[in-house]
């Protein structure tokens, strides 16, 4: 087991406002390399990279940190800068790597939900609604008004949260400096609680098959599986994937299996 502590343990110099702005710009490419295995991980690393290089002058530490940030990551693309700010503060203070990972994972799930509610269910319908109602009347300002309103909030939030997250992170860490090992334990607790919730919420695995015998109908999902335990299939499938990973199967194999499951399920009308 390799060490969770950076070789060079002295805090790096604080990032300037200009550097933070630069990183916020880079966060626009968070999903450039989106894929099902790591989701936003490579884009997340891309967004942080200049910051990490500034913080970790030690080659080995930079490599460790880059490797950590290539792990699965997925959050809301607008609110990601808040997590970036906090994580950069932690990296700068050379926090325990396990604590950094725990905090990152604990934040990504909730922010995903908040971002959906804020941007896709509130801001977009309102601004696009205004824009579309103007456009339907043939008014050229429809699309322009939409873009201005939407992006005023979008970029305000993106750049604001970067600063806010970083300042908050720096402050919180100096308060928590004693007892770092407890911080990483606490972060892992929140992280795993959230992952448990994410599995039940975001893995969509339902049986659509309805068993019929004469008049009787039995919906397998609602009448059988949900009665035993809701979200049983998402949990079961995730644990199966976990087990296969531990057995040394590569994520690519698992993705292949999942595609086959989906295709077979659709072909036989089961899923």
């Amino acid at each position: 087991m390799e060490s969770n502590i950076y070789e060079d343990n002295t805090s790096a110099q604080e990032l300037s406002a200009r550097q933070l702005r630069h990183l916020a710009w880079r966060s626009l490419l968070l999903q450039a390399s989106f894929n099902y295995e790591r989701m936003q991980a490579a884009g997340w690393l891309y967004s942080l990279l200049p910051g990490l290089r500034y913080i970790h002058k030690n080659k080995k530490d930079l490599s460790k940190s880059m490797k950590d940030h290539m792990e699965f990551f997925n959050t809301h693309p607008f609110l990601v800068t808040f997590i970036m700010g906090v994580i950069l503060a932690m990296e700068q203070k050379k926090e325990d790597r396990e604590a950094i990972r725990g905090i990152k994972i604990a934040m990504m799930g909730p922010l995903g939900g908040i971002g959906d509610a804020m941007f896709y269910l509130t801001l977009l319908p309102i601004t696009a609604g205004i824009g579309a109602s103007l456009a339907i009347e043939g008014n050229v300002f429809g699309p322009i008004v939409f873009l201005l309103l939407f992006n005023l909030v979008h970029f305000g939030v993106r750049f604001g949260l970067m600063n806010y997250g970083y300042k908050m992170g720096v402050k919180a860490i100096s308060k928590l400096k004693e007892g770092t090992q407890f911080v990483s334990r606490a972060a892992s607790i929140v992280g795993l609680t959230v992952v448990g919730g994410l599995i039940a919420t975001y893995v969509a695995f339902n049986v659509s098959y309805v068993w019929k015998s004469g008049e009787a109908e039995l919906a397998i999902q609602a009448d059988v599986l949900d009665q035993i335990m809701p979200a049983m299939l998402p949990l079961g499938y995730t644990l199966l994937m976990y087990w296969l990973l531990k057995k040394g199967r590569s994520p690519i194999t698992l993705i292949g299996i999942t595609v086959i499951v989906g295709l077979l399920g659709a072909y036989f009308n089961i899923l």
Binding site: Y36, E37, R38, M39, E71, F72, N74, I105, G191, V195, L198, I199, Y202, V203, A204, F205, P234, Y237, T238, L239, M241, Y242, L244, L245, K246, P251, L254, I255, T258, V259, V261, G262, L263, G265, A266, L271
Partner: peptide
């Protein structure tokens, strides 16, 4: 459907 199940792999990697 496969796209809907796919996050399970990511979560499994986190668990690992």
């Amino acid at each position: 459907i496969a796209g809907g199940i796919m996050p399970a792999i990511g979560f499994a990697m986190l668990l690992k």
